[in-house]
């Protein structure tokens, strides 16, 4: 949890007001984020519940008037890494570093040139896009959800994820290339590419 020098001390009724009016309205976005991280609906429920309980416990470190959604997303992401990821089979941070170095190399820029057509994509009306997203490494899924679905700016994403803004930018670039590559495989399997 972020250290803040001067913490507000909210009264009981202020706490309840903040929790009910600024935190709870984000429950659907939080659940979706939890689901995209864990890929499991029960785990997502637990993660969201834990996050809200933490948010309540640490409510004095939330500054009113700042972005509650970004604050909650950061807690959820930290809970995922600290509590959930440890227990799961997701690759560790160390493996991920290698992945990122690989995907940031110029080699990959030359290799990944997805030939996905807009017509093929528009024909994907089922679960293809969702499945393709879920097939990506968790760090790539995360940036796409934060940016495209939740509309966070790069600077907010950098704070939520505790990474430099340049890493946000390159990770997103890579994530979209991988997503399009996956979708172009689907398009081929479905025979959408001929025309």
């Amino acid at each position: 949890m972020e250290e803040i020098l001067e913490r507000p001390h909210y009264s009981q009724s202020e706490k309840e007001a903040i929790f009910n009016h600024e935190f709870l309205p984000h429950i659907n976005a939080m659940y979706n984020f939890g689901y995209r991280l864990t890929l499991d609906r029960d785990d997502a429920k637990d993660l969201v519940q834990d996050t809200y309980l933490k948010a309540y416990r640490f409510i004095d470190s939330f500054q009113q008037g700042t972005n509650a959604k970004a604050w909650l997303f950061r807690i959820l992401k930290n809970s995922f890494i600290n509590d959930y990821r440890k227990k799961s089979k997701e690759p560790s941070k160390v493996d991920y570093q290698e992945v990122e170095t690989y995907y940031n190399s110029e080699e990959v820029d030359r290799q990944i040139t997805p030939d996905l057509r807009v017509e093929s994509l528009s024909n994907m009306i089922g679960d293809e896009v969702s499945n393709a997203l879920n097939s990506l490494d968790v760090d790539f899924r995360t940036v796409i959800i934060l940016c495209d679905l939740e509309g966070f700016k790069y600077e907010e994403m950098a704070k939520i994820l505790d990474i430099p803004i340049g890493t946000v930018r390159s990770r997103l670039h890579r994530a979209r290339a991988l997503l399009k590559e996956k979708l172009s495989h689907y398009a081929k399997e479905m025979g959408y590419t001929k025309s």
Partner: peptide
Amino acid sequence: MLREKIKTKCCSEAP
């Protein structure tokens, strides 16, 4: 189009 698809296909509601 990709962004549109993500917006419409990758959200789920909390139980």
